[in-house]
Nucleic acid binder design. Structure first.
Lengths: 135, 135
DNA sequence: CTTGACTCCGTACCGTGGTACGGAGGGTAT
DNA sequence: ATACCCTCCGTACCACGGTACGGAGTCAAG
């Protein structure tokens, strides 16, 4: 089993060292074994394959738009293989995505129309700015 | 011209008193005339129609997804009727919306497929969680 | 055995858009 | 004139996901 220090793990996950420490504080990564000085708080963290896998899991779930808090729950599910709950969380995320996409599309639509009007109307006040004044 | 105090202005814009003060600090609303105690810093703010219009402008632009900083620029344009720059800003905003919408749609698509797989596969590890492990 | 890179830790700070606090003074209705 | 609410101000705090700092300890190579 190849071991690594915090910088190696961070590199393997494409994040910074501080981010790994942060995930640890958040409880997303477990506290690893240490080697070296056994002083107040122990020596240097030693990570293995399992930690890299976990870090990768976090980044993937993050890409899917899950918050770190939700990812914490996903990690627990991952241990228990709770498919029902996993589908529930995925469903919630999809619903949130639906809502957000619809909202952004509505804004885009009205902004597009405004820009169109602004380009075609050759005189008078700018329709874009006027819209914010009066809508 | 009907005058109002900060609470009246805030109500007219559907925001809180603290939010009006915040916009003032941000320079989005001008410093209004004061009445009352002329002590250190002056008395009570008096607002008119123009301020309400401005506050409304801010909220509308915000709905269109502009940041407060961008809104600051829009306000300057509003004074100068700079249509070219307004179209530019609207174009930038639309492009950002396009990108964000595409991103969210991609995530939604893969999450939907995962949820589908999870529902149909009746045994083995949950595909949703497995995807985060291995992707 | 010294140099230099890496690691340790707590704590503070970043951006964004506000919200909350709290004591002193202003304005108004009865 | 006496309640009673509103306004004043600076400053601190919220969520979110990190990033930066700085002094001390550790580690491997030369």
């Amino acid at each position: 089993m190849k071991e690594m220090t915090i910088a190696g793990l961070a590199r393997s996950g494409g994040v910074g060292v501080e981010t790994v420490r942060y995930y640890q504080r958040r409880g997303l990564l477990g506290t690893p074994s240490r080697s070296g000085g056994v002083g107040l708080g122990g020596g240097i963290r030693r990570y293995g394959e399992e930690d890299a896998r976990r870090l990768h899991f976090i980044r993937s779930a993050q890409t899917a738009g899950f918050s770190l808090e939700q990812i914490g729950e996903l990690i627990e599910l991952d241990a228990g293989e709770d498919r029902v709950r996993a589908r529930e969380l995925a469903g919630e995320r999809i619903a949130a995505l639906d809502a957000k996409i619809a909202e952004l599309e509505a804004v885009r639509k009205s902004l597009r129309r405004l820009a169109q009007d602004c380009a075609s109307a050759s005189s008078g006040p700018c329709p874009i700015l006027a819209a914010f004044d009066h809508d």
